[in-house]
Write a protein that binds this DNA or RNA. Structure first.
Length: 681
RNA sequence: GGCGAGGUAGCUCAGUUGGUUAGAGCGUCGGAUUCAUAACCCGGAGGUCACGAGUUCAAAUCUCGUCCUCGCUACCA
């Protein structure tokens, strides 16, 4: 290639507290791998970096739960994920890890550099503290009853049952997961990054691609949802972010008197990209850090949409403050991949795990790559279903791609003893179509439109099938062997280009196909149609793809449903005393009036009649009941909760609701026609 | 409620700076064919481009409003 370009490509560091699922793959790894493979094929200079993100409270908690150590947890998943990537054919230059010494050193140096520049602000705040263990509690270390769904094992940052994100102070009856005792509030301090100071240049950089007047990237090439979300954050006003945390598992804050403090993930994880590059440089004999500073090397972060703010706002601020580093050229974040109609969820075990797929479908890595590539959530959420997987494999890989290759090779063996027959005159249309395919694939991949690029690549196989159908060599052989040979020659050349063009998407298949033809992938020039010389021997082909039978996908669907059934087990709370129960004052109440609370999606303000007494209650049921359908109902009412102001309205007690597995709510109404005010015991 | 992204054929999605009868793949129906894993190839049917108004000679494409989905956010005693 005349002008090779330089790239530094990263994929989001997977968190080492669990295995990889299809959502991860479709979000950040497969697109990056296709991108990198293609650019390398074109002769570009590409470094591809990834690794395990191994710090944070979730890992220490998992360790505690399993009676293990954080190091053991991350060792397990680092190893598993690293091997899974390898088996699946995601080829990083280095799959590093943030628990490594060199990363700690790099991250500390980075922090110190910024600290010495005075970019952080030290701030005090109150946080939960475990007196028995003499330790501040990260969000995940606090457990309590979820204020939203009453799940009694919600974490301080998130309730895993209802999925709502929380802050520790919201939890009812918080307890420390270390000691099992209620924590106390205690003052602590942290270093904050005052992001609001950087709004001006950040806006110019994101919206116009300009940094200090110099064009850095083309915002038109950024995805709408990425630009939109960034603008939304900047316009909404940036807030200071804590850059440190009270925790003993992580990169220690390299300052006097900062014992028990570690760098927060915003700093730790993205710097992992840098430390991995440095490490790679040490292994390969180049200056890894310098790659981040070459002004003609483009930095591209592949991530999921949940990571946009870190990669487009926080990390760029850090890089710029540090100085010398390139800011990303693009952050082609993907949306989410759903599974069989539901969101993927590690905690609810609703996922297809990549390592399990590789076990269940040995040798079918390319099938998954193909299906995932064709449904990548590039611009909107998309959905993986096993039925769709089966249909795409059978109708496209088997019927179009595999079939064409098989036809061309079988015919060659049948009529020409497996030797490439002599070429005739060039078929201009075919040559041109191949050229178009190359340039369309190139345009697609370089603009991060991988689905489209794959479609264009598949057109080559369709072209081959059509060419065979149009020329009918199986008929022509009876009358004109020379002409038949010329047709097969063209068909084989198409197959060769097909093998070349699908290589970034389906590397194993490409290798196999080119192997049939006795070709080396690097030997194919996109501008020269004639790849195979007359007389060369072609191997007897085996099938590139097998059909996926109904039973196979049915089994996978059953497997999923089984994991869902496990999730639906009923959780019983601990026993309580009758006295405790009697403290609750529950009554029947009739809803007399209802209206939506302004500026709140979930709230209805209800006027209740409770045996002649009027009460006002604000209830979070607006997404399940409209005001109209609620009036006149006699429902179950808990009257003696402390009154509380919600959205400016004082709520006296609460309406008790039943919830089903899908999270739908239902009133509890008396089975007989009882009047309001009736006691419930 | 605020912000962001979407709402195009049964399904998955394209539709560039507004410009002839709105496209592709899958599915469906019909035809042709047998080299090929009952595969391939050709053709038909199928769309009030979420809805309403506006700008324009001309709007899926621009503007405003409404509804719906997803994400972030507030709210859930």
């Amino acid at each position: 290639m005349a002008n090779p370009q330089k790239f530094l490509v990263t994929s989001a560091l997977p968190y080492a507290n669990g295995p990889l699922h299809l959502g991860h793959v479709a979000g950040a790894y497969l697109p990056a791998d296709i991108f990198v493979r293609y650019l390398r094929q074109q002769g570009d200079d590409v470094i591809f970096i990834c690794g395990s993100d191994e710090h944070g409270a979730a890992i220490t908690i998992k360790a505690k739960k399993e009676n293990s150590t954080p190091q053991a947890v991350v060792d397990e998943f680092h190893e598993l994920n690293k091997q899974t990537f390898q088996k699946f054919g995601i080829e990083f230059d280095l799959y590093d890890r943030t628990s490594s010494e060199h990363h700690h050193k790099t991250a500390q140096d980075f922090f110190l550099n910024l600290y010495e520049k005075g970019v952080f602000e030290k701030e005090e705040s109150a946080q939960f503290f475990d007196e028995e263990h003499q330790q501040f509690l990260a969000d995940r270390y606090v457990m309590g009853t979820c204020p939203k769904c009453s799940h009694d094992k919600a974490y301080g940052d998130q309730c895993e049952k209802c999925g709502s994100s929380l802050s520790p102070s919201e939890l009812i009856n918080p307890i420390s997961t270390l000691s099992g005792k209620p924590p106390v509030m205690k003052e602590t301090y942290h270093w904050y990054l005052p992001m609001q100071k950087h709004e001006a240049w950040l806006r110019d950089w994101i919206e116009n691609g300009k940094l200090e007047g110099v064009q850095q990237h083309d915002p038109k090439k950024w995805k709408p949802q990425v630009l939109g979300q960034c603008k939304s954050w900047v316009d909404g006003g940036l807030q200071p972010r804590a850059m440190t945390r009270d925790l003993d598992w992580g990169v220690k804050v390299p300052l006097e008197g900062a014992d028990g403090k570690v760098l927060y993930v915003w700093l730790d994880a993205p710097i992992g990209y840098i430390s991995a590059t440095k490490k790679l440089g040490e292994q390969k004999g180049f200056d890894g850090e310098a790659l981040w500073k070459e002004n003609d090397r483009k930095l591209v972060h592949f991530i999921g949409k949940d990571n946009i703010v870190f990669h487009c706002i926080i990390f760029p601020i850090l890089l710029k403050l540090h100085g010398g580093y390139n800011l990303p050229d693009n952050v082609p974040a993907n949306e989410f991949l759903n599974l069989e109609g539901d969101k993927l969820s590690t905690s609810r075990n609703w996922a297809v795990w990549l390592h399990e797929y590789l076990e269940d479908f040995p040798g079918k890595e390319d099938e998954l790559r193909y299906v995932l590539t064709s449904i990548l959530p590039e611009y909107r959420d998309s959905e993986f279903t096993w039925k769709d997987y089966q249909a795409r494999v059978n109708n496209e890989l088997v019927a179009i791609l595999g079939n064409f290759v098989n036809r061309a090779l079988v015919l060659t063996h049948k009529y020409f003893e497996g030797k490439v027959p002599a070429a005739g005159a060039q078929n201009k249309e075919i040559v041109e179509a191949i050229g178009v395919a190359y340039s369309e694939v190139d345009a697609g991949i370089r603009s991060y439109n991988f689905r489209q690029a794959l479609t264009e690549a598949m057109k080559v196989a369709r072209l081959g099938n059509k060419f065979l159908a149009d020329t009918e060599p199986w008929k022509l052989i009876k009358s004109d062997e020379t002409k038949t040979g010329e047709i097969l020659n063209i068909s084989l050349q198409i197959a060769a280009h097909l093998g070349n063009i699908i290589q970034p998407f389906l590397p194993n298949t490409a290798k196999k196909l080119l192997g049939f033809l006795g070709l080396d992938a690097n030997a194919i020039c996109r501008n020269a149609f004639e790849v195979l010389k007359a007389g060369e021997t072609i191997e007897k082909p085996s099938l590139l793809f097998q059909k996926i039978e109904d039973e196979v996908v049915e089994k996978q669907i059953e497997k999923l449903n089984a994991s869902k059934a496990v999730q639906n087990t009923v959780n019983f709370k601990e026993n309580t005393s009758f006295d405790n129960f009697q403290l609750m004052d529950m009554k029947l109440a009739t809803i007399k009036a209802a209206e939506k609370v302004k500026k709140a999606d979930k709230l209805l303000q209800l006027k209740l009649d409770v045996g002649g007494v009027e009460k006002t209650v604000v209830s979070g049921i607006a997404q399940h009941y409209s005001p109209d359908e609620v009036i006149g109902k006699t429902v179950l009412y808990l009257s003696n909760l402390e009154p509380r102001k919600i959205r400016g309205v004082v709520s006296e007690g609460m309406i008790l609701m039943a919830e089903n597995a899908e999270g739908a709510l239902s009133f509890m109404v008396p089975e007989k026609d009882f009047e309001s005010g009736g006691e419930v015991r």
